[in-house]
Amino acid sequence: MKIVMIEPINISLLKIEEYRQRLEVEGHQLIAYSNRAENESEMIKRAEDADILIIANQPLSAEVINSCQNLKMISVAFTGYDHIAVEACQKNDILVSNASGYANQAVAELVFGLAIDLMRKMKESDQAVRAAKTRKGLIGNELAGKNFGIIGFGSIGQKTASIAKAFGCNILVDNHKKYKAGEEMGVEYLAVDALLKKADVLSLHLPLKKSTKNLIDAEKIALMKKTAILINTARGPVVNSKDLAEALNNDVIAGAGIDVFEMEPPIPKNHPLLNAKNTILTPHTAFATEEAFLKRAEIVFANIEKWLTGDPQNVIS
């Protein structure tokens, strides 16, 4: 089988060589590109003879997929797969597996980095020290005892909840689906609107679908407490950025920590959140730790090896 890593997945050349040797022993070929293709024509050139593709979060269109006559399997080095033309994969009988679970810890940890930064005014405190000022106006709030709301209670949402529990928070979860882990942690299940009204911190962990696009808009934000903060490490379009920026600038809520946008960074200079008050913006780094990248690579290649033996895992299509 010809296996093509169409874009880098943030592991060392030494690690790639280990995987290459592992696959060659079984008679397979691995071609790994060290940069992203600049356009679809280049993507087609790289992928057209591949039996298996490895891709991270670069969009993979139906045009590229339909050009790959030998393609049988795609191993996505990401949890989300909305950047893959899944319908084209289904039409061409191409199996798709994702790397679910690799960044649970990384994403959950950044949630609390953003939350604590906002609640304890870390950015402003740093600026105050550098400007020879005191803590005046910088008295923050503790996480302990706060209502920590989570919308999207999959593996990352559950990991986030477990950390929130350790901080002494009351865990609120949308009642879309109930999990055993929620029962063990003693979470309170609420309808979304009720959760929004009660949460002191709202953390989003849901996939991007038609039903979740712009889920958090002006109407939903208006339900939240004026002292609440919003954290989005899920998908950018789940939140209406324009509505959020207006809400922040009008003190409808107290702050927001945003790691994801409608596009991959760099974001345009006129993006509404760049001029919003009380925000911390990070360039889609929630998943990006050295530990997570190593876990991700292991899952990506395990997906391929399991598929080759007729026992596919992490199948999404």
Score class of each variant (00 low, 15 high):
K2R: 15
I3M: 06
V4L: 03
V4F: 08
P8M: 11
N10I: 12
I11H: 02
L13G: 14
L13T: 15
K15M: 06
I16W: 00
E18P: 00
E18Q: 09
E18S: 01
Y19D: 03
R20L: 01
Q21C: 12
Q21I: 07
V25N: 05
V25D: 04
E26D: 12
Q29W: 05
Q29E: 13
L30K: 08
I31W: 08
Y33Q: 09
N35D: 06
E42D: 15
E42F: 10
E42T: 14
I44W: 13
K45W: 13
A56S: 11
S61R: 12
L71W: 01
L71F: 05
Y81L: 00
Y81I: 02
H83G: 04
A85Q: 08
A85T: 08
E87I: 13
E87N: 12
A88I: 11
C89S: 09
Q90S: 09
K91I: 13
L95R: 03
N98H: 10
Y102L: 07
Y102Q: 14
Q105P: 00
L110V: 02
L110C: 01
V111M: 08
F112Q: 01
G113K: 02
G113F: 06
L118E: 03
K123R: 09
Q127G: 00
Q127Y: 12
Q127T: 07
R130D: 09
R135K: 11
G137I: 08
G137V: 06
G140S: 11
L143H: 02
K146S: 14
G152H: 04
G154L: 04
K159M: 15
K165S: 06
F167V: 07
G168T: 03
I171M: 11
I171F: 09
I171D: 02
L172T: 08
K180V: 13
E184D: 13
E188N: 15
Y189C: 14
L190Q: 15
L195R: 04
K198S: 05
K198Q: 15
L204C: 02
K209H: 04
K209W: 06
S211E: 15
T212F: 13
T212E: 10
K213W: 03
I216V: 13
I216Y: 07
A218Q: 10
L223C: 06
K226Y: 06
K226V: 05
I229K: 03
A234F: 04
A234D: 04
R235K: 09
G236E: 06
V238S: 11
K242Y: 11
A245S: 12
A245P: 11
E246N: 15
A247S: 15
I253C: 05
G257V: 01
G257N: 01
E262A: 02
M263R: 03
E264F: 00
P266C: 00
I267V: 12
P283D: 14
T285K: 14
A286Y: 11
A286V: 10
A292R: 11
R296M: 10
N303E: 05
I316Y: 00
S317R: 01
